[in-house]
């Protein structure tokens, strides 16, 4: 009986959290009109969310592309199809690895930072203080961060994929001797603008939305103590990673499944 009650309590608590999360989302979205009047707030957040994530995204993109070049070459050469290396590298990057790995890195780099920042602002009463200064902290603090995350993610994913394709080129063409023309032309013949690139961008927009939402919610909903903030930060990374991978499956099934 106790077990059942505990299950019920957990269920109710999760539903309540879900409800608070959606209310927070609505509140953040209602701040969009205010944000258009203060573009500077968005720029500052684009800097901390986007620009500061660029280094890790570029380096990871380069190495993921190079690994894809190596692995792809060894598998494809068994079928005598080394020329298809370009397609393989580009398709895996644009469809899957670009959006997914970028989102995972984003959750670790920017998402955890957002949670910690908002959590600390809550713990040090800064959010409360803004409220008492008659400034809505959700519209003023959270909305710009939310928009910055939403905008940054597709751009970061595009940078990741582009750098990865170049990394694959470095290894495949430069090191392993795949024909340069074949690398690009097969890629161009097989990668479809709509099916592959658009869908990849849509994926990364969805991931940007979900990751930033989770990060901001965890920060805003955390227990305002140092322990609470550190737990919320961990939760952000775990929840974001799970959400990204599950959503990726759903989106892939919707987009590429007939």
């Amino acid at each position: 009986m106790e077990q059942l009650a505990r299950l019920g309590r957990t269920g109710i608590a999760s539903l309540q959290r879900l409800g608070r999360g959606h209310l927070l989302l609505l509140h953040m979205l209602s701040g969009l009109t205010d944000l258009t009047r203060r573009p500077r707030l968005l720029i500052a957040q684009l800097y901390s969310v986007g620009v500061l994530s660029m280094l890790i995204i570029t380096i990871s993109g380069l190495f993921v592309g190079m690994v894809l070049g190596l692995q792809g070459f060894y598998i494809l050469s068994q079928f005598g199809a080394e020329e298809a290396l370009g397609v393989m590298v580009a398709a895996s990057l644009v469809r899957e690895l670009g959006p997914v790995v970028t989102a995972l890195l984003f959750a670790g780099r920017a998402g955890s930072a957002l949670t910690a920042e908002i959590g600390l602002m809550k713990a040090t009463e800064q959010l409360s203080g803004l409220e008492m200064m008659a400034v809505d902290p959700i519209k003023r603090i959270l909305t710009p961060r939310f928009m910055a995350g939403l905008l940054s993610m597709p751009l970061l994913a595009a940078i990741f994929s582009a750098i990865g394709v170049i990394g694959g080129h470095l290894v495949g063409v430069g090191l392993l001797g795949v024909d340069e023309g074949a690398y690009w032309s097969q890629m161009q013949a097989k990668i479809d603008l709509h099916e592959d690139i658009y869908n990849g961008v849509i994926k990364s927009i969805v991931f940007g939305f979900v990751c930033t939402w989770i990060a901001l919610f965890q920060g805003h909903d955390c227990v305002p103590t140092s322990e609470g903030v550190s737990r919320a930060t961990t939760r952000t990374v775990v929840h974001s990673a799970l959400a990204i991978l599950c959503l990726d499956f759903v989106l892939t099934a919707l987009m590429f499944g007939e």
Binding site: M121, E125, Q126, G129, A134
Partner: peptide, 19 residues
């Protein structure tokens, strides 16, 4: 409520300055 709060000041324990 926001209009009313403009006529109230509050000094938090920690100061709550924006860092």
């Amino acid at each position: 409520l926001y209009k009313l709060r403009m006529r109230m000041g509050m000094l938090f324990q920690s100061g709550a300055l924006l860092t």
